[in-house]
Amino acid sequence: MPTKPTSDDSGTKTTCATVPAEVTEVMRESANGLEGDSDHGLSSMDKANFIRLWAAHKRRVYAYVLSLVPNWADADEVFQETNIRLWRDFSRFDGETDFGTWAISVAYYQVLTWRKRQSRNRLVFDDETINAIAEQHGNLLPVTDARFGALRDCFQELHDRQRELITRFYAPGTSVDELGRSIGKTRAAVYKALQRIRASLRNCIERRLKRDHLA
């Protein structure tokens, strides 16, 4: 499957020569799951619209889910269920409604559904905190995009090694111990280095947002 370099919505340039074979296999299985479940009368244009809208909003939805379910694996699960639910219900989506708002509300239900399935001791937050966090997303919405942009720019200003540490630390499945061993640092040192980098990024973001009168 030929591909060519393009940019994602963050402006981060990525270069992908081909889609790896194992990925196309997963794609086929996953898409079969979606398509096989129900095509629910979506036209090709509907599907294209869904992909476009989802691409534009998934970043915010993922951040939302992750804040309510602060565990990578669990958040991925809820995020996937949200994606599937949105896809299934897309024929009912009103074009006049903001897709992001709709997607966030569906994500919220999926979080609640997921919480119901969990034993109480697996839940990090109580209902009150969940509601407070969910509400805060709405309050921060006006600066969210600006913050994404500032973070992207600040990330580019990091030293190569700092950028690499962030990239490796946040890679799915990363073990902090293994990461530390591979770069000759203790686990504590990895965490400490990460905290320092993140603190400098926060300062950089604040400066940029203040400069743009958004902080």
């Binding site: 994602d8 919505d9 994404f148």
Partner: peptide, 12 residues
């Protein structure tokens, strides 16, 4: 043209 990349836990 299919490009992958992006943020938020899913590729664009």
């Amino acid at each position: 043209s299919v490009a992958a990349g992006g943020e938020g836990g899913v590729t664009n």
